[in-house]
Design a protein around this nucleic acid. Structure first.
Lengths: 255, 255
DNA sequence: GCGACTTTGTGCGTGTGTTCACGAGCGGTA
DNA sequence: TACCGCTCGTGAACACACGCACAAAGTCGC
């Protein structure tokens, strides 16, 4: 997508506090079209938006028209005030005394998360975990199409998963740009991860989801998110051993 | 985050009433014995300890005897000062001018994370993802033995994965206590997740790793960590659509 | 034995994130 | 029309986390 209309320029964006509600635009900030007021969205908020979106989608499917912050927050498992503040960051437009229009809010969140277009995903490492990921429904569910699969194992190269052929990792530099890959998923063993990562970055991929238990080093401008099962287990183990004294429920997202 | 991370994850067990921390007693100066310093360890630190542990284990295998915070931090992808502060929270004992004794520090981190004993893990949902998890090496690598597998599908019940037989979910209340399960992993479809979670909690499990795209509600004292692939992807999508304008300085590894 | 160098441990300023509490706006009702 | 209750949006206080920079504490070389 071409950069949305008015990305706030540095000067304005820098201002941590939005003085008060955009005073300068008395005109129609109400148009159905997204009002494109993209101030900087806090990282923690972005993580939660995805959760809200799921709940909203579900509600939409059930025919719910409007929802209050209280109800939505409960369904998403967060504090209501936090939810309202999150939505305020994306230029929310709830109606006082009523709540939020579900379909409108859904569209708004999708827009902010960049889900209005589909994203081509390349998955590297079609082993145990990678194979499962390739077939994982939730992956393709929300516009994330796995458009390329790679592996080093000659036994796997040439096979197909979900209609997508597995290619040799050497093809990454050629295939990724061809298919417009914007997101890379690394599901290789740890030793191969950095090399694969470099190949993806070289192919223009700037967002990477890393399942390999290794720290990836990437150049500036490339975002890496890490999902580490062993780490998650160990955090739980910590709480098991501490569990005797009160521990309260916690949600991790990003983390 | 699920990780986390960032996700950093919300409020720690910070229950208002936490009388454990002795307020006024500065305690004796350096008791030689394993000074069981239960100073509350910040949540963000716990998450990183697991990462440090992996690096330390690797170093230990390579015969490295001592390591400086600088080197260790670089390998773990964090700031050196942050690492030192993290270690100070667990009552670290580095030697000024030298660094940390790798084997000693390894043992210390393991102790804090509760890895000195092995943890019995129950995995519910042996579908696409669950099957991969059951066979995932990193799972069992660090003392997390998958000692029980459950599913509802009669076609799966009775089969074995990695030498562990798949049982019917109805067996959860009986089998989990029998096998001393302390950690539960939910890898079921979203609709079944809450029900399974309740069963696990009922069976005494107080730490749950949730892969299902749903918010689980649990009673006080039960910790839930969530790994949500769709959320991770959407966070990346956000950055893809923001990445188009100039330099996004934030690299943000790990929540 | 002594000085110089190395590295830890931590106090402190800053920024980010969370929560409370309350004013403001909107729909419904008489 | 005027009131009333409901719910949003947000200012402000609080809690947590991060990273700098420096003193303390130890080792190494001579």
């Amino acid at each position: 997508m071409t950069v949305d209309g008015g990305v706030p320029r540095p000067g304005t964006a820098g201002s941590p506090a939005t003085p008060d509600a955009a005073p300068g635009t008395p005109a129609g900030p109400t148009p159905a079209a997204p009002a494109r007021r993209l101030a900087r969205v806090p990282g923690a908020t972005v993580a939660r938006l995805a959760v809200y979106l799921r709940v909203l989608t579900e509600m939409l499917a059930q025919g719910v028209r409007t929802v209050s912050s209280d109800v939505l927050a409960a369904a998403a498992g967060v504090n209501a005030a936090k939810l309202r503040k999150d939505l305020s960051h994306i230029g929310s437009s709830g109606v006082r005394g009523v709540g939020y229009d579900v379909s409108r809010l859904t569209a708004q969140v999708e827009s902010v998360l960049g889900l209005t277009r589909s994203h081509a995903v390349a998955l590297v490492g079609v082993g145990n975990l990678g194979h499962a990921l390739a077939g994982y429904g939730g992956f393709a569910a929300r516009g994330f199409g796995v458009t390329a699969l790679f592996d080093v194992d000659p036994a796997l190269v040439g096979t197909a998963i979900g209609g997508v052929e597995v290619l040799d990792v050497a093809e990454i530099p050629r295939v990724c740009p061809e298919r417009g890959v914007t997101i890379g998923v690394v599901a290789t063993p740890a030793v191969a991860a950095q090399q694969v990562c470099d190949a993806l970055v070289g192919a223009g991929v700037r967002s990477i989801l890393n399942f390999a238990p290794t720290v990836l080093s990437v150049p500036e401008g490339v975002e890496v998110r890490k999902v580490d099962l062993a780490v998650e287990m160990q955090i739980l183990a910590f709480h098991v051993s501490r569990g005797l004294d009160g521990a309260s429920e916690t949600e991790k997202v990003f983390g």
